[in-house]
Design a binder for these strands. Sequence first.
DNA 1: TGTTGTGAAAGAGTTCACAGCA
DNA 2: TGCTGTGAACTCTTTCACAACA
Lengths: 216, 216
Amino acid sequence: MPTVSSEELAAAAGVNSAKLRKDFSYLGSYGTRGVGYDVEYLVYQISRELGLTQDWPVVIVGIGNLGAALANYGGFASRGFRVAALIDADPALTGRAVAGIPVQHTDDLEKIIQDNGVSIGVIATPAGAAQQVCDRLVAAGVTSILNFAPTVLSVPDGVDVRKVDLSIELQILAFHEQRKAGEEAATPDGGGPAAVARKESADKGPDGDVPAVMPA
Amino acid sequence: MPTVSSEELAAAAGVNSAKLRKDFSYLGSYGTRGVGYDVEYLVYQISRELGLTQDWPVVIVGIGNLGAALANYGGFASRGFRVAALIDADPALTGRAVAGIPVQHTDDLEKIIQDNGVSIGVIATPAGAAQQVCDRLVAAGVTSILNFAPTVLSVPDGVDVRKVDLSIELQILAFHEQRKAGEEAATPDGGGPAAVARKESADKGPDGDVPAVMPA
DNA sequence: TGTTGTGAAAGAGTTCACAGCA
DNA sequence: TGCTGTGAACTCTTTCACAACA
């Protein structure tokens, strides 16, 4: 299949074809009227725009279960990410290989970052160690941090941080689950702070359906 | 601090106070004019709306590094989730405890789901096993699935699936990192599919800044 | 002819601004 | 007086619909 139409792609993605065409148009005019989009060319252009055509060396700090899971995760390589080093504070782990990569000690963090030209760091340490690790990564030249530790990191301007909360998606499922369960039954309450009366009439949004605060 | 104003909360969250008030208003009229919101009452109402006041038993299937990391994750308990069981297909793991919870064999999956009244399942298996596990979970009565396996699951109507891709956040960081690096340098290209000329003028969106396809 | 690329219209989401009330 | 709750205005996003064109 050398070419594909916006209609086909939109059906596959479950979105409106006009939206898809407009989104693509922000990247450039890569389609051919009457024909569609050249698949190979489109894939390349999107890959390039997203940075998939570059090699991104990353370090993972904190090689517990989560760090090890990330080191073994297959999805990184195909998106241009290369795990350049694994770092942990536990001397017992130093030298041991995880996913074929030797774990190095935190003492050498700065040297590892500089030797490998790393600009993206992944923090998978316990919450207590995260800020300190973050500070050292930033001082060593890292400008983007992916934080799996359950704590908010503070960083200087110019450094990007994204926090991954493994329970937030579960939270969203539970929210919908709750709605499924309570479709006819009365609102489950169970008490709550005494003293203050609940206003029954105002519990739901004006459309009487899904409160507007939750992703669909 | 017994009460808090929308202005204070908005500043803390980095949003507009009117937006915050309007969002709260969809849950009900829980504030007091001239005073603000009673903190305890507000926390309770939001918790209840989000389902945090309920007990949600979940099972985790696939106790590799990721499954173990999830079983150990502290953030679940505080949000009303209780890991009711760990399930793995490897007989060598059966009976071993992870995070204090014994691993059970996949053979008993249906019985485990039913005995514990589980409606939310977490899949942390390799991609190849995910659909099969999913089918069995659904058949046993699970109606919400959190999928960490790098594969798209198909489920019947009425079952919710959410997919977590551990590399997507890294992708977003790399995208911004690329922009930081290329702020003045020419667009890094490096070839690409031959034969087709790139239209230099159209590479960026009409605002000449961030293409509209990436979260800020 | 068939499909893109895109102005214009419609729809959602956000912010303003102020009446209403404690 | 001070802060909420909310209609109205504004802004951003999505969809429609069709001219342009390979």
